[in-house]
Design a protein around this nucleic acid. Structure first.
Lengths: 230, 230
DNA sequence: CACAAAGCAAGAGCAGTGCTCTCTTTTTCT
DNA sequence: AGAAAAAGAGAGCACTGCTCTTGCTTTGTG
């Protein structure tokens, strides 16, 4: 909270823009996100907002990074609440936190994990780090179980060279020492988790959600925990 | 190809609109789909297109139904090529067909299984039937294995009443006689399959796709086949 | 065959969008 | 104090979805 009055005012305006942007995102969805509407809510003329945000795409990037962080914070907080639980339970906690957040923030979730907004390319240098925090937490759960010796390692055949190189890249990027088979399952479980949540959030289960979406998800979590070996 | 000349012309124009719409969808994405641009490519003035399509949303619905059918046709054709294969192999064929189609038609795939287009609500009465053809094929693979007695049925505890009712609804809607545990796994495998494909199509695996996306997918298919019990 | 009815295409127009440019005022720095 | 930088306002361009009116063409019928 330091700096000249002008800097403070600028920081405040930036915060206001993100706040109102998130609100519009939740209320009307990503494609309907309009810089002019945000400007109106801000009590500014539209051209003035361009002093702060270069384009509509940059506003989307702002909200994207914000969303990734918010989700990762929620999942990390849930995991911190059960630091000493068994790996399987920690995995389930992660999954439940992900699902809760997605159901509470469907529009932001759609921005992060739905179809990319057309014509919009997320700048990797700004989104990669926050975007990988959740999978990092997932791999961490597996890594802890592996260190404790409780992880069930599937007996897959050796990965082809290109895939093995890719998995080695994952080990480096995330700083984990898990065997190929576990990493492969980890990626599957990660994708499956988001598949389950996406189907529920995007309504692919139909209007009634198969009667009891929470119970269904809990069963899926149990099966996925087994797949992960925790 | 019957009817008065006017009826034929109308059918032709409708076909042209869908064709150009698909082209624009693939080229520029769903949110950039513009009725005016389609009209230009059609050599018509924009207002004339409204004689054929009531709104932009209806054009999206047209393309949605078209996409569901195209995907289901591709998967069904792939399955028809291996009518007598073992259930596990038929499941893998289904998965590969789904992935191939999604990679070939990313924009249409995004329209079907990505985030819903904001402000657009798909009319269930027109999209439910074509939209469930793929999952119907998946359940059919499991049902055939079940009839042959080769399906591994997981020993889950009984589903809570609401979920049991929902699963009973699935049995009725799809005309299969599978136990709750198999249906639950079926839904999981279905969601996981789309999670894997979505992550690959939407670029969540990063720019290099973990080195060898096809090999990774093949491994995931093997794990999911085991989950399904085929 | 003639003629009203229905269908079709075009054009103008409204309200909204992203974005750029210019102009004026305010704040900051030297 | 004066120059430079930043902020906000306004006009304007090209685009969008969609509506309404105005003519023209095809259709089915008396």
């Amino acid at each position: 909270m330091t700096g000249t009055p002008r800097e403070q005012a600028r920081a405040q305006t930036m915060a206001d823009i993100t706040r109102i942007g998130r609100d519009h995102l939740a209320r009307y969805g990503a494609a309907a996100l309009s810089l002019r509407a945000v400007a109106r809510d801000l009590g500014m003329v539209s051209s003035a907002v361009y002093r702060y945000v270069a384009s509509r795409d940059e506003l989307l990037t702002l909200l994207l990074v914000d969303g990734y962080d918010d989700l990762a914070d929620a999942v990390a907080a849930a995991l911190d609440d059960v630091p000493d639980a068994a790996p399987g339970e920690r995995f389930r906690v992660l999954g439940r936190a992900l699902r809760s957040w997605a159901l509470a923030e469907p529009a932001t979730y759609a921005l992060l994990y739905g179809a990319p907004v057309p014509g919009y390319r997320a700048p990797a240098e700004r989104t990669t780090e926050p975007g990988t925090r959740v999978v990092r937490l997932l791999l961490d759960v597996a890594a802890r179980a592996h260190e404790a010796g409780t992880l069930v390692v599937p007996q897959d055949e050796a990965a082809p060279p290109a895939l093995a190189a890719g998995l080695e890249g994952v080990r480096e990027q995330f700083g984990v020492a898990l065997p190929d088979a576990v990493l492969t399952r980890g990626v599957l479980v990660w994708a499956a988790l988001f598949g389950c949540v996406s189907f529920e959030v995007f309504g692919q289960y139909g209007p009634d959600g198969l009667g009891d979406p929470a119970a269904l998800f809990e069963r899926h979590l149990a099966a996925l925990a087994a797949d992960l070996g925790v």
